[in-house]
Amino acid sequence: MASSLLFAGCSPDNDAGERQGKGDPDRDVPILALILDVERTSIAAYALGISRLRGDALDLARELADQERQHAERLERLIKDLGRTPHPAKPAEHYQRGFPSLADELDVLTLAIDVENTAIAAYLDALPKLSTGSLRATAAAIATNEAQHLSLLRDALDRPAVPDAFVTGEG
């Protein structure tokens, strides 16, 4: 199912040709800002959930949250490199508004899986729209890292860690 959805968008007319340079600010900054918002949501999810975790799950969440912060910092830098100023992060409560209540480890890891899937889908949606090969490569490297997070989180819940050959964030 996932692969058929991917192939539906596969035609030689799509515009994703490589352009040299840092990118096109008018085209790329709104896309980068959108995925920066997704990263900030992930950071807020881990911040909210960490207090409910112990042991291995806590260690894992801390590590993944740190990598989410690195993604956000990189995206902010890319926006600055394009000559624009990234919007400042909103208070954590803003991003946490839509989250379910978290009673235990299962709730936290399930939320983390949801936010990782959302991030992967956002990156896959953004990738063909970015104007340079360099930006696409960076976005793909982050999406791949999010997919790795997803596997570790699924494994922590004793679910199949890699259930699909194509990782689309729709799982």
Binding site: N14, G133, R136, A140, A143, T144
Partner: peptide, 24 residues
Amino acid sequence: MRNIEDGGLVKIGAATMANHGQHL
């Protein structure tokens, strides 16, 4: 990702890369 022209292929390539990253 740097060299593919077709946007659909970019997406499939990234979904495949992510899967290999999980394997790794």
